[in-house]
Amino acid sequence: MKMLKCVVLAAAAAVVGAPVHAADYPSRNIDLVVPFNPGGAVDTTSRMAAETAKKFLNGIEIKIINKDGGGGVVGQTFAARAKPDGYTMLAITNSAVSSPLLKGAPFKITDFTAVGLYTIDPEVIAVPDTSPFKTITDFMAAAKQRKLNIVSSGAGTSHHMAGLAIELGAKVEFTYVFSRGFGEELQAMLGGHVDGALWPFGIAKQQAVGGGTRILAVASNESMPGFESVPTWEKSGLGVPAWQTFRGWAVPKGTPQEVVTFLSDLLKKITAEPDYRAKMDKAGFPVVYRNAEGFAKTIAEEDVLTRRIMNEKGLTLKK
């Protein structure tokens, strides 16, 4: 078997020719690994970016490769172990930070080099339209009286962590009702089966405009356009400054610096494209660009924050 593999690999190498040089990068299509099945937020935003990238790449394309499994871990691991030649990128989100810490994923966040970031989605506290809580003050006052039921995606996700951060910051406790998909969360909120939700702003915005839910507070540094009356978490006294879902690109560690710069610049051009911005805005994703350096800092901060909350809340890797 091994010999056969060697023969096949040798033949393959002969056909492909010499290893790719950074100078003529990119000379073929670039794979963007989305570690989920098609249809989710990461997949949709990645596809929009790939479509826009066609304008800048002269016939070369960014191909979306969906690698699902293990809540993102399978695809993330695949990307972490890919050849660092710039032809495999990962569509990276917060879960790449938390999975190694909480799920025992077999990679480290430092196995990736950040390329750039295209959305920052601040976390919000939302309540059903029928809820008695009109303001964040009502909400927090009730939270001090009893444990409110908060719906959020699974244990250990950044949304759950946001709730834990509020617990630490405002000295309250929540009961978490987790979900295995956004449909369940929306159902629980629109039907008024829970007291509130921890959601990214993009999703919450659509629901608030549609009229089923109400946003009480947003975890950004300043208030969001279109929702100027909604206070920030900081101002509402939650004791948590900013909290966000980020989405961006990363490559395996060891990718040549020129390649990272090329991709980072490409993402900058994509995020500046009006058509792309319009579609992202419509779908609810706030477009923010950060270059490789800025994104690396965002990821590092997330890592520190996650570890701190795990520590203070006594969360550990389950075996």
């Binding site: 393959a12 492909v16 073929r28």
Partner: peptide
Amino acid sequence: TPLPVLEPLQILIRQ
């Protein structure tokens, strides 16, 4: 489908 095909073929069909 991104089948696990060998690299030469991969480059051929994905272009």
